[in-house]
Design a binder for these strands. Structure first.
Length: 739
RNA sequence: GCGCGCUUAGCUCAGUGGUAGAGCGUUUCAUUGACAUUGAAAAGGUCGGAGGUUCGAUCCCUCCAGCGCGCACCA
């Protein structure tokens, strides 16, 4: 007979041992599953940022995905859960920057190569630590296929995609207005910008008309940029229309500025006249570009990368920080004010990491075209050239090839897709994948060749390795900018499967479910859909399951500074991983923020104890009997209730409603099986009537065994441990037992 | 400004076109018996407000109020 279960369940005694058994079994790798497992079921794990340790949010997605994988594995699917880690470019660099600050070292004084190596070590250490944590959480992922976003083969795929996009005209390099963080010294994408309400002044400045006493009144919040003004724009129907085509005088430096007409200027807002400062405002840049012919001046920049005014701003302003320069400029301009400055509340762009005001600058950067069709830069092979990246993604969702859980995110997705601008993918940071573009150095000077043709070297080449110029000996230097992390992680589903085992891509792609937090819907999910359909012509997954952000019992986001963080590994250590997993799943619906407290976890620890003791009771009372069981009508009803519960749970599982599946399992086990079935069996187990005892025993054993199975995806450790102690079971793992 | 949600028991949240559910908490009782990390029972809600559709609405529609979130180049 099997060994007796201990007096109480001790997760510490069980969890590591069980995980080891699973891992040794090889079944995490779908290729090793028994023959009954046929159709693949694939989840690519959202690779956690390798710049810290796992927090409760990670524990949530790990639990959800492990539930899906374990369920599908038991259902006979060839279940692949592919783990990974993300180098998380900018995020990690910010973390490392802070670490250096604490150590009293200066980020900016460390040479690029050294910094890269230091961050690499830091990241790899974290990565290794996190792998251990994933094991603790019970993640049944295939470690043999683990990938890291900086693996050489992954980088190769990313380079290829970049080249394809470039050849298709969907990637371009241009001088355009971008968002610059003066603290982190890099540009950021639109998504990395937050908007903050600020109290500022709105200044009303007179720009005097040339050779006239008349003025155009301009409202501005940024008088310090007036030296970079290049024109004044008014709406063709505004009160200023009579001045269109004339010149005004720049009130700071006396230069002549043409008055132009542009319909983007709202005649109702401010004074109805807009100063055009192309290098310090994106709208101004656009207006300037539309009116280049009418504007004689060249746009200049008067603010440098540190947010200080340059010489070009004039000696009165040069050297001042923007904020101080504004005060200074106001002083200089006071004679030109048409009225007193007003208090003005408006939204200002800030860096999402440090809150520093974003400085719009015009810089040479790399962009991905989101809304335009490709232009067939080369002519051969067909890719998805007929449509834009946006349309690829929108079509995938519209055609139901991809569906969202919960459904409402489909609307949010569409809304975001509607308002898309080109995506700046270059970052001036060290930690990341260098953009594989090489520039001819020095700049190519066209010369006459042998046949009299003008030979012009290629100024820029897209290449993984250093190219050679076909005409001269000049060196090519590599772009120093690196990719926005999301450019590479947006390729994760296919990049991983293209670089694991041979045949994996064909077998496991497209994947099934992408489960991740809703806050990276735009950063990540949309990009995966775009790049996935672009490169493979298939939607990378059919279901997007979006979960919420874990909050504490007062609905607060967890953060170290608030001191309300629940470390999943710490509480798992106290209450057991199974309890933490249950607490994360029950009461949590897709798309909503789960609320977790230690009390809640304690409650499910109690449930684990209940499971343990009910099992103990069943096994303690089990004895070999020769008598044939004689089932009573109550037995039959109990077995029928079991089937009903199983069906209900299965239906919830298939709907990705893990909350209700878990709750049903919990409720059935505790309040039906333990409270009713077990209670009513007590007398019968001690009865002289062996046929009746046998019936009672076999009902208990049957229900216990089945319960362990339907609880297994949620509480993998305790259920496996008990399953291994059941009599009359083949010595296999519950992990691959038939659902 | 545009968009998406939420408002149900003291708390945290589920849920359904047909006289409201769970967990925790509260109250009472029981218990040396697999489990005090227990069991039995109870109290507790006019399902945010006002209209409408319907035989019937907490659930569908409209409006209102409060709250939350996302997007956003009005100087």
């Amino acid at each position: 007979m099997q060994k007796e279960l201990g007096k109480s369940y001790d997760p510490k005694q069980v969890e590591d041992k069980i995980y080891q058994i699973w891992e040794d079994s090889g079944y995490f790798n779908p290729d090793n599953l028994p023959a009954r497992h046929k159709k693949p079921f694939t989840i690519i794990m959202p690779p956690p940022n390798a710049n810290g340790s796992l927090h409760i949010g990670h524990a949530l997605f790990v639990t959800l995905e492990d539930i899906m994988i374990r369920y599908q594995r038991m259902q006979g699917r060839k279940a692949l859960w592919l783990p990974g880690a993300d180098h998380a470019g900018f995020e990690t660099q910010v973390v490392y920057n802070k670490k250096l600050e604490k150590e009293g070292r200066s980020f900016w004084e460390i040479p690029r190569e050294q910094l890269y190596e230091e961050i690499k070590k830091f990241t790899l250490d974290n990565k290794q630590y996190m792998e251990g944590q994933l094991r603790k959480l019970g993640a049944s992922c295939d470690w043999s296929r683990e990938k890291f976003t900086l693996d050489e083969d992954i980088k190769k795929v990313v380079y290829e995609t970049f080249k394809m996009l470039y050849d298709d005209g969907l990637v371009y390099r241009a001088e355009r207005p971008v968002s610059w963080c003066t603290k982190h010294q890099t540009t950021l994408s639109d998504l990395e910008i937050k908007h903050e309400e600020r109290q500022d002044k709105l200044y009303y400045v007179n720009y005097q008309l040339e050779a006239s006493g008349e003025n155009i009144e301009v409202a501005t919040t940024r008088p310090e940029t007036i030296p970079a003004d290049i024109a004044i724009a008014v709406h063709s129907k505004s009160k200023w229309r009579k001045y269109i085509g004339k010149n005004v005088i720049n009130p700071i430096n006396g230069q002549k500025l043409p008055v132009i007409a542009d319909e983007n200027v709202d005649p109702e807002f401010g004074t109805g006249a807009l100063k055009i400062t192309p290098h310090h405002d994106p709208l101004d840049f656009k207006i300037y570009n539309d009116h280049k012919g009418e504007i004689p001046g060249k746009p200049i920049s008067v603010i440098n990368q540190y947010g200080k005014l340059t010489e070009a701003a004039g000696k009165d302003l040069a050297g001042f920080k923007v904020k101080d320069a504004r005060v200074k400029a106001a002083e200089i301009l006071s004679a030109s004010f048409s009225k007193e400055p007003e208090d003005y509340t408006h939204q200002v762009s800030v860096c999402y990491k440090c809150g520093t005001t974003i400085e719009p600058r015009v810089m040479m950067q790399w962009f991905v075209k989101m809304t335009e069709k490709s232009i067939n830069r080369e002519t051969e092979k067909q890719r998805n050239r007929e449509t834009s990246l946006r349309d690829l993604a929108v079509d995938a969702v519209k055609s139901k090839k991809i569906k969202f859980i919960p459904h409402r995110f489909e609307k949010i997705f569409m809304h975001w897709m509607k308002n898309l601008y080109d995506w700046n993918i270059s970052r001036q940071i060290v930690w990341g994948i260098r953009i594989p573009a090489w520039y001819h150095e020095p700049k190519c000077i066209p010369k006459v060749g042998h046949e009299g043709d003008v030979v012009k070297c290629k100024e820029m080449v897209i290449s993984e390795t250093e190219p050679k110029c076909e005409f001269c000996n000049a060196k090519f230097v590599q772009e120093t900018d690196v990719f926005d992390t999301w450019f590479s992680s947006g390729q994760w589903p296919f990049a991983t499967l293209m670089t694991t085992k041979k045949g994996d891509f064909e077998k496991y792609y497209p994947t099934d479910v992408m489960a991740t937090a809703y806050d990276i819907l735009f950063f990540w999910v949309t990009r995966m859909i775009m790049f996935g359909t672009y490169r493979t012509k298939k939607a990378p997954f059919h279901t997007v399951y979006l979960h919420g952000l874990v909050r504490d019992k007062d609905r607060q986001k967890m953060s170290k500074s608030k001191g309300n963080v629940i470390n999943p590994l710490e509480v798992a250590d106290v209450y057991g991983t199974d309890a933490v997993r249950m607490a994360l799943v029950i009461g949590t619906t897709a798309g909503n923020d789960p609320i977790i407290s230690e009390d809640k976890i304690r409650g499910y620890r109690n449930f684990a104890t209940k499971i343990w003791n009910a099992s103990r009771f069943v096994l303690m009372n089990y004895r070999e009997l020769k008598a044939k069981p004689k089932f009573t009508s109550a037995d039959k009803k109990n077995l029928k209730d079991l089937q009903t519960a199983k069906k209900k749970i299965t239906a919830y599982m298939d709907k990705y409603d893990f909350n209700h599946a878990a709750e049903t399992a919990y409720h059935y086990f505790w309040h039906t099986f333990a409270d009713k079935v077990i209670e009513s069996s007590k007398d019968r187990l001690r009865s002289e009537n062996e046929a009746d005892t046998a019936a009672a025993q076999s009902v208990l054993l049957e229900i216990l065994g089945e319960s362990m199975k339907f609880l297994h995806p949620f509480m993998p450790f305790i259920t496996e441990e008990i399953y291994q102690n059941l009599p009359n079971k083949r010595k296999s793992l519950i992990m691959i037992a038939k659902w």
